[in-house]
Design a binder for these strands. Structure first.
Length: 273
DNA sequence: CACACAACCTGTCAGC
DNA sequence: TGCTGACAGGTTGTGT
């Protein structure tokens, strides 16, 4: 389910739900998700205290005592939820379960198993293969007009897949790439190097779209006991994504769907040039 | 290096 | 109700 806003919503939920707890026991229902759990994963978590829940790109970073970092990626279908009962039976696709010393626990469920869990040293984060080549955070200061101009300038393919390239900017997935291009009035099919002059507007659009989605996810989470971004996700309304054939919210002409790099792209041919 | 495409795995939904 | 095929929010590896 996650693009950056959903992961950020889950991060906030986890922060409330598990920060300050002590991990008493870890149960793995199987040995792998997208990649195997490291051999020391369960033992490495047990006995540790949860200091903070952070995020880099679409990865959740759970800081533990002893300089350890529990890295979690939700893939397409991963979700965390908390439980209060002791001796809870694992449901279908529950792959990981934590029991807290203080009582209650946390479950990771992931039907498609595109998620990922690992345990690394805090200090190896920057050089770690998962993180070394990641571009700037879209909501951070390093995502500048000059940076995006430079990235667009060396790409001759369509602009939309460039926005989804994590070495250009992280956190922008298939939904928000379409939404940001709509907000910026840019046709997703145009060559990336033809819109360098719109880099500044594109950054503003990306931020607007992501911040709007975070605000919507966060507000729905308030009434939610569970750690689960799904409610916020489905509550959010999209301007073009998933709206093939429906009237453009701005001009009324039908929204089109095309395929780019194997993914669906939605856009308004009138409003986006 | 830039780019397209397949692969990973399961669930859901539209259409028959 | 059941079957089939298309499609799903991510990332990585391969081949050109």
């Amino acid at each position: 389910m996650p693009e950056l806003p959903e992961v950020e919503t889950v991060r906030r939920g986890l922060e409330t739900a598990i920060k300050g707890r002590t991990i008493a026991r870890v149960t793995l229902a199987r040995g792998d998700l997208r990649v195997p759990f490291p051999p020391d994963f369960a033992a490495g978590l047990e006995g540790r205290h949860i200091l903070a829940v952070e995020r880099r790109a679409k990865y959740l970073l759970i800081r533990l005592t002893g300089g350890k970092l529990w890295v979690a990626h939700l893939g397409m279908s991963g979700r965390f939820s908390t439980f209060a009962e002791e001796g809870r039976k694992p449901g279908k696709h529950d792959h990981l379960s934590l029991q807290f010393k203080e009582g209650g626990g946390l479950v990771y469920n992931d039907a498609r198993r595109f998620g990922l869990m690992t345990l690394i040293e805090e200090e190896e984060l920057a050089e770690h293969p998962l993180f070394a080549k990641l571009g700037p955070e879209p909501l951070g200061k390093a995502f500048t007009t000059a940076w995006l101009e430079g990235q667009l300038a060396r790409r001759k393919g369509p602009v939309k897949p460039v926005l989804m390239d994590a070495s250009v900017v992280v956190g922008v997935g298939n939904i928000y790439a379409s939404e940001a291009l709509f907000a910026a009035g840019i046709d997703p099919r145009v060559r990336a190097d033809s819109v360098t002059g719109k880099a500044k507007a594109l950054i503003a659009s990306i931020r607007k779209v992501l911040n709007g989605a975070i605000a919507s996810g966060g507000s729905s989470l308030k009434d939610f006991v569970q750690v689960d971004g799904e409610a916020g996700y489905f509550q959010h309304h999209f301007n073009v994504y998933g709206r093939e054939g429906k009237a453009c919210v701005r001009c009324g002409s039908p929204v089109r769907r095309i395929t780019q790099a194997g993914r669906s792209t939605f856009f308004c041919p009138e409003c986006q040039r």
